[in-house]
Design a protein around this nucleic acid. Structure first.
Lengths: 222, 222
DNA sequence: AAGTGGTCTAGACCACAGC
DNA sequence: CTGTGGTCTAGACCACTTA
């Protein structure tokens, strides 16, 4: 349980700039090197990561500066956190199926391979925020967790994802979901189609998230 | 004209793995160090960047592997490339205005400050792909380019952005844009609202992009 | 001339996998 | 035990800006 020095320095810098105005310089790399008694490469690594986060920005030959907090880079795209267990949700439906050409194609499996389907309503302060249709490749789920749907979700949350691919599709809310989402018929909504890939390039899950535009907006800062 | 060594190594690695199957290992860092006659830190920097791009992935204590090309991380979110001059487009409208509360609020300027408004239709193979309403803070545009709208766009393309904030809004296509976008009345579409920030946290431009769902889908791989 | 960030080197030690 | 990626050091030179 040894935290790398560069991570400690990241936290120290965060502390230092917490009350510092945007666009004011932080100490130079050579000053921080002495202050934290670390090598310059280690200090740079800490700064590099904070720059990537959008917390700091560099100007060549001049210095490193505190960024405006509204520039912090975050991706609050809905389905990325689909397996987030912190949220309130209600399971609407759950089964194991096969022989569905469309789903098999999305999951890149044969039509004869099984998949798990979970329909889940996500709540925020009791209000329906989105409805997920989750399809998971049966073969990629450990047998030991198949007995319980909560175990499957917990298992899924731990999957090391290689990347997530999302397509945003505009549509009129499907009639069968309008009531559940507490949205009027004919409301335009966004459906996020996500493919969760493992590191070796196989698809673990395919998710369709129907978002209630009143409760959930997709926002990205890059 | 001196390209850093780590960038050269990135290209060399790209070449090496071009015909290599996904999930097969590349040479170890110490082997690459000798092969390219560079220090390990330099080799690591090259690999680090390729991992960030999603071209490679590491497994601790084991090795570094070629990623599936579908895992390459890209953000093809429309308005990010709004000032991309490579695309075909047609200027629909252009003026300089002020006294618009709503726009002033988005641009975080006083209602008395001027802004430039450009309405632009983006084409792909002659088909309308999206319609942008671009609002730029007048004060942030160099006087020397104000004489020509193309100069303004070129100037904008060169702005060093700190970050881009995007909100995705589902809606029915505005009637006034339906014809231009070659989309039927009542079609559900996505409008991307983008704020282009400079490094010092000021807003340079605000863009509303109305996307033709037939011609343009928003896709992100993270 | 002094100071900055950007790049680079040639070592080093660590924890962990697999044999 | 060997090899891997992860971390770290104490220097160095460069191009550039500002004074």
């Amino acid at each position: 349980m040894t935290i790398p020095i560069y991570q400690k320095i990241m936290e120290l810098i965060r502390d230092e700039i917490r009350n510092q105005a945007p666009n004011t310089p932080i100490l130079s790399e050579r000053e921080l090197e002495k202050k934290y008694n670390a090598s310059r490469m280690t200090v740079r690594k800490a700064i590099d990561l904070l720059v990537e986060e959008g917390v700091l920005y560099r100007v060549q030959n001049i210095g490193t500066f505190v960024a405006d907090s509204k520039l912090h880079k975050k991706t609050d795209s809905h389905a990325l956190n689909s397996f987030d267990l912190e949220c309130d949700y209600k399971i609407i439906y759950f089964d194991v199926k096969d022989e569905n050409r469309e789903v098999a194609q999305k999951l890149e499996i044969s039509t004869h391979d099984q998949f798990v389907r979970i329909v889940r309503l996500n709540l925020q302060n009791g209000q329906p925020e989105s409805l997920d249709q989750i399809y998971i490749v049966r073969l990629m789920i450990d047998d030991s967790v198949m007995n319980n749907i909560l175990n499957i979700l917990e298992f899924s949350a731990k999957i090391e994802t290689g990347s997530v691919n999302q397509v945003f599709v505009p549509m009129i809310v499907p009639v069968k979901f309008a009531n559940l989402l507490n949205v009027k018929i004919n409301t335009p909504i966004i459906c996020v189609q996500s493919k969760i890939n493992t590191k070796n390039g196989r698809i673990y899950a395919y998710i369709e998230s129907y978002l209630n535009p009143e409760a959930k907006s997709i926002e990205i800062t890059i």
